[in-house]
Each structure stands twice: as structure tokens, then as C-alpha cells.
Simulated assay, not measured.
Amino acid sequence: MNPAAPARTAPLAVLALAALALGAEAAAGPQCRGTIYLTFDTGSQSQAGLIATVLKRQGVKATFFLANEKTVNGDYSLDQAWAGYWRERAAEGHAFGSHTFDHTYYVRDAANGKITVKPQFGPHAGRTQDWTPQQYCAELQRVDRRFEQMTGARLDPFWRAPGGKTSPRTLQAGKACGYQHAGWATPAGFSGDELPVERASNAALLRRALDGLRDGDIFMAHMGIWSRKDPWAPANLEPLIEGLKQKGFCFATLREHPDYKK
């Protein structure tokens, strides 16, 4: 037996371990240079199927904010006909928040601590009402109860006001019943899918998002907008995800966002 043999084989073992480590790193892919949080609010639901397909194909998890909005099918987005869709998204690991049941807009703070609101759908659609903070909380919870009926799961503890319109009073009302508001904070976080095509083409909106989004940004789009002539998602969603990946970004739900972790 040659006593020098162990000394010669030791470096080989180190090299082999290094090669294995490099291989594992390559398999795992490049390190994230930042994280983007994609979020989608319910709308006409015309793009619901496409959004689900693209997210699955790209291996991206997103956060959905649910309201009971009228859809292109003539029903509503929290009707039983949509239960299968929401169950599938829940099984895929996406996150979910309340968007108020009747897509209820904040109008102003009223007297006696109340909140003036205007529901877009439901029995009081288009009419302003003065709600107590407890009534506002109940509107958020209606989505949670309906989501549990459809999927067996509960919403995550966050909500988003229609139009992003809030006040300290509405924020406190949500917080009092366990929901933290999640807006989009930066201009680049607004997809622009509500804007007229004449003012904002899909190409311009895509460029703005790719140029402007930064680590930690929340990006908001809708699952279909009635008024936009050229829908945003078919042209922009996949190019946006692929473009952000090329820039080194990864994606996560708001469950992982430092401001919204449980």
C-alpha cells in the first residue's frame, strides 16, 4: 500500500464535491435579484382562464382580490359556477384577499364615525350609504365566508379597496376585523389596464412596467375590464413575467411580502 495515496485522492474528493455543488446551483437557477408580487382584482373575468394558464405555465404564484362582480358570462364572480375556478387556484398555492363583496367604493368619512360608501353591485348598487365601521368590516367578511363555502379555505388576512380608495377610518375598520390593506404603492405597480387604449397602448404599458418595477413592488391588474377595447392581459401578462425573469426577478404571493406576513 502506497502511504502517499490518501494525500493524492483527498484533493480529488474536494474537487468532486465542488463539482456537485456547482451542479446543484445550476439546477436551482440563478439567484433572485429581487421579488415582484403580482396581484389580480376580479373584474369582468374575461381574462380569468388566460391568467390561470399563464401563471401555471410560468410557475408563478400570485395574489387574487375577490369581489362579487358581474362577469362576461352573465353571472357573478363568486357564484357557484366559479367555485371550481377558485378551488383550482387555491390548490395551486395562490393567495387570496377580500375586495369587498359588492365592489363597494369608499366615498368619504361621514358624521358620527360612519363611512359613506357606494356599492357597484348587489341590492344597493349605485346608491350611497352611511356605514358603521362594523358594517364595513362585515362587507369584507362576506367575501371570506363565500370563499370558504366555495373552496373550503379561508382568505388570507389582507384586503384591497376598490379603486384603491381608502381613509384612516376604512383602514382601521379592516384592521379591527383582521385584514390589512394591500395597495400597490408605486406608479409602476398600476398596470394601467383601466385606461383607454387611446391614452395607453398595451406596448406602452408593458414598457412602463418593465422599466419601472423594482424589488418589493406590488403589481396590480384586473381579471378583465369592461371598458378597455384592447384587453391588457393577452398582450402583456406573459411578456411581463418573462421580461422580469430576464432581469433577475422572482415572484411571490403577498403571504411572503415583509409587510403582510402573518
Rank of each mutant, 00 (worst) to 15 (best):
V60S: 11
L240T: 04
G113L: 10
K262D: 13
A28H: 12
P157F: 07
V60N: 05
A235N: 05
Q141D: 13
H103G: 01
L237Y: 05
Q129N: 02
P157Y: 04
D41Y: 10
T39N: 07
A19H: 01
C137M: 02
P6M: 10
D75R: 13
D217F: 12
L213D: 07
P234S: 08
S77Y: 10
F40H: 09
T35H: 05
G43I: 03
H94W: 12
H257F: 02
A62M: 11
R89V: 01
A233R: 04
G84Y: 05
C177T: 14
P234N: 06
P239A: 00
L140P: 00
L12N: 11
D193H: 08
L206D: 13
N112C: 10
K247G: 06
L17C: 14
W86V: 15
A5P: 03
K114S: 13
H181C: 07
R145K: 14
A90G: 05
F251Y: 00
P162H: 00
E242N: 10
T71W: 05
A16F: 15
P187L: 06
A52H: 08
N202A: 03
A67R: 09
K245I: 08
C32H: 12
F249R: 02
L22N: 04
D215G: 11
W226D: 10
F65V: 04
F190S: 15
I218F: 10
A204F: 07
L155C: 04
D130M: 09
H124G: 09
V14L: 15
Q180D: 10
K262H: 11
A111T: 08
A91R: 15
A91I: 08
S44G: 09
L50T: 02
A83Q: 01
R89F: 01
L244P: 02
K262P: 15
T9L: 15
L50E: 12
N202W: 06
G59R: 10
E88K: 15
L210S: 01
R145D: 11
R127M: 14
E198I: 13
T151E: 06
E148N: 09
D144V: 07
T104K: 08
G29H: 02
R33V: 01
S44I: 11
T104Y: 06
D102Q: 06
K118V: 14
T35D: 03
I115W: 03
K229R: 11
P3H: 09
T63A: 01
S227H: 07
A67F: 06
L66P: 03
P234G: 03
D75I: 00
K229M: 04
R145V: 13
A111D: 15
A24M: 13
D109S: 04
